[in-house]
Design a protein around this nucleic acid. Sequence first.
DNA 1: CAGTGTGAATTTCTTCACAGCG
DNA 2: CGCTGTGAAGAAATTCACACTG
Lengths: 220, 220
Amino acid sequence: MDPSVSAATVGRLPAYLRAAIDLSASGLASVSSERLSEEAAVHPATMRRDLASLDIAGTRGVGYDVKYLIVQISHVLGLNQEWPVVIMGSGNLGKALANYGGFSERGFPVAALVDIDAELVGTTIGGVLVHAPPDLAELVDRENIMVGVITTPPGVAQEAADLLVSNGIRSILNFTPTALETPADVTVRSVDIATELQILSFYRQRGLAADVGTGVPLEP
Amino acid sequence: MDPSVSAATVGRLPAYLRAAIDLSASGLASVSSERLSEEAAVHPATMRRDLASLDIAGTRGVGYDVKYLIVQISHVLGLNQEWPVVIMGSGNLGKALANYGGFSERGFPVAALVDIDAELVGTTIGGVLVHAPPDLAELVDRENIMVGVITTPPGVAQEAADLLVSNGIRSILNFTPTALETPADVTVRSVDIATELQILSFYRQRGLAADVGTGVPLEP
DNA sequence: CAGTGTGAATTTCTTCACAGCG
DNA sequence: CGCTGTGAAGAAATTCACACTG
């Protein structure tokens, strides 16, 4: 019914999907929003509204069909196709991600690594070949790369982003603390470990969990 | 003035801090909210309100003193002390994080790794010694560990969390896709790479950036 | 009759717009 | 004069609560 999906809703979909997969694995065929939302740590009404906004319907008096949930949410997230990924920068993090099975397993195969270090170019990390930056154009084309992951040093992150963008990549996952400048039609998600740790220390310092209501008292 | 800080505000503080540090590095002594908020990709009024809620004041007609901003935000985030970290699980990601300089550099020294693999216990990764799980109690005590980072396989993430909690750790950074159950006074931040990629593919599928207003049209 | 789907109420967060201060 | 600090307005998101349906 509702023709649009809010960013907040999108942010929760992966959690719903995981919850549904978990419940399915434990043999459940049908769930109430109560049960599923508990699993996903969300308010039941929020979950029902989210699913309704995606036209994912349950059965009144019964709940949601777990298999159907998985299929529908996967579809909305675009997980019925593969999204090949290129990792820019083969430092510690880049290497770890290339070795990390989780990517391909979840539909995001690591198609290539790119690094400026001539020593590394041509070597293989976690079964993935390291290429030189100028090769990117061809790679994107040949491997049908959809997503760029930036794990370079912060100083050259913008450069890496520019290179991705100029080669037609419009989805970027940025692991550096750099705020990237990109055209409006490029989606960037940033994951900064320092940011996460700093937020943790804010709450820790006050002896409070992060989800205590909405307001956190300040020291006098 | 305002005695409380909202979660939304806390989430933006690290970005303000980074922006201030960057501007300071380029020699700027004073910034307007206009300039700083641009750097942090936030609305100027939002930034002024955030800072005001922390009692961080600027000078009317001038702006904010950059050095003062850095000191104050750092203080609010608790960055004037060190927060030693223990990494649970020395698989690919755990190893990468141990090797990753960024932690210690930013006040979160990696004090120890913990792994169940007896082969790994006693070895050193990135200068950090790997310990057996039963050693955690002593480690927490001796190294004054404040934060637990979980990089185990998803199946044992809850176990790792339980171990952390039972040893008094109340801040957890979880890199697994598992939704952890913890007492109410424990703060958990989760970073799941698959979640981020799935959100990217949602928007990519629709040819839209993530920040286009608030509602995203659904396919017909 | 259990549990969805959703108007309406509420809460939270953002942005406007301007008074007021340095 | 320029820019902060903030009341007031506005927009979004969440939650309540219940009519309604399988």
